[in-house]
Simulated assay, not measured.
Amino acid sequence: MRIIKFLLLIALFVSCKTEVKIDTNTLETQVVSTEEIEKNINTSLDLWHKAAAEANFDNYFNLMTKDGVFIGTDATENWKIDAFKTFSKPYFDKGKAWSFTAIDRNIYVYEDQKLAWFDELLDTQMKLCRGSGILKLVDNQWKVAHYVLSIAIPNENVSEVVKLKADFDNLYTKNILAKD
């Protein structure tokens, strides 16, 4: 009977894609399921978006890694964390940054369970947007390491949008190529 219980326990661990954590002080083990990890990631991302909506600068940036990157919807917006803080600070100081609410999210956890990536469909002031990114587990907290925001454009409207942005895109492309 003990063997059957042991085999069932092993099957449960394998089927749940668990992580076994060992507390080095007490040598106690703790099993964390993929579902629990995804729940923690969802919580971190929701708190991150909430901090922006509430213009809480410290909470927002404390949920990003020290080397975090935010890529915005404008082609010029590829912000390393210090530059992103400088850009964002005036918005937060006014009491209104941006408001993103996830209406759909997919999370993928890497096998070492210390890295994850995700995509999310967002309700924003720009209407539907897509966010995607990478999170790292830092001191037992999931933090945004890299985030990409894009405006969701229906396929039937792409040609209209391309016309609207063609002049800017052509000039910006020319300037980038001139740097090489």
Rank of each mutant, 00 (worst) to 15 (best):
T65V: 11
S15Y: 10
S159K: 15
V14K: 05
F61E: 03
F100R: 02
G95P: 02
S99E: 13
T73F: 09
L12A: 11
I37N: 03
F57W: 01
F61R: 02
I22G: 05
F13L: 15
Q30P: 00
N56P: 03
L9E: 13
H49C: 06
T18L: 05
S99D: 15
A97Q: 04
V109A: 06
Q30Y: 10
F57G: 00
D23Q: 04
K136D: 10
N59C: 00
M64P: 05
I81F: 07
K165D: 10
A178T: 13
K17W: 02
L137P: 01
T29L: 04
F57A: 02
R2S: 08
A55Q: 02
P154Y: 12
F92N: 02
T73C: 08
F57N: 03
N40S: 12
N42V: 06
F100D: 03
I37H: 02
S159T: 14
C16A: 07
E28H: 12
W48P: 01
D58A: 03
F57V: 01
V32M: 04
V69G: 01
Y110P: 00
S44E: 07
E38T: 08
I153F: 09
A166V: 10
I22K: 10
R130H: 07
T124Y: 07
D167G: 13
T29R: 07
D74I: 11
L128R: 14
I3L: 12
D123P: 04
K143A: 04
K165C: 09
I107Y: 07
N170F: 14
D119C: 11
I153A: 10
D82V: 07
S33R: 03
N78L: 11
E54K: 09
Y110M: 04
D119V: 09
L149R: 01
P90N: 09
Y147A: 05
V69R: 00
E36G: 03
V69Q: 03
V69Y: 03
K114E: 09
N40R: 14
M1L: 04
Y108A: 09
D180G: 09
L115F: 05
F57S: 00
V20W: 08
A52C: 06
F168W: 15
T29F: 14
E156H: 12
L47Y: 06
N59W: 02
N42S: 12
N59R: 06
K127S: 14
F13C: 12
L121P: 01
D112F: 01
L122P: 01
I134W: 09
A55E: 02
N175M: 15
F118R: 02
L177E: 15
D104I: 02
F92D: 00
V158W: 15
A11Q: 06
T86M: 06
F87T: 07
D139K: 08
Q113Y: 11
F168Y: 15
K136I: 02
A145N: 08
K127R: 12
Q30W: 00
K5I: 02
L137S: 04
A83E: 12
A75N: 13
V69P: 00
L27T: 11
V109D: 02
D46W: 01
Y147M: 10
E160R: 10
T65S: 11
V31R: 08
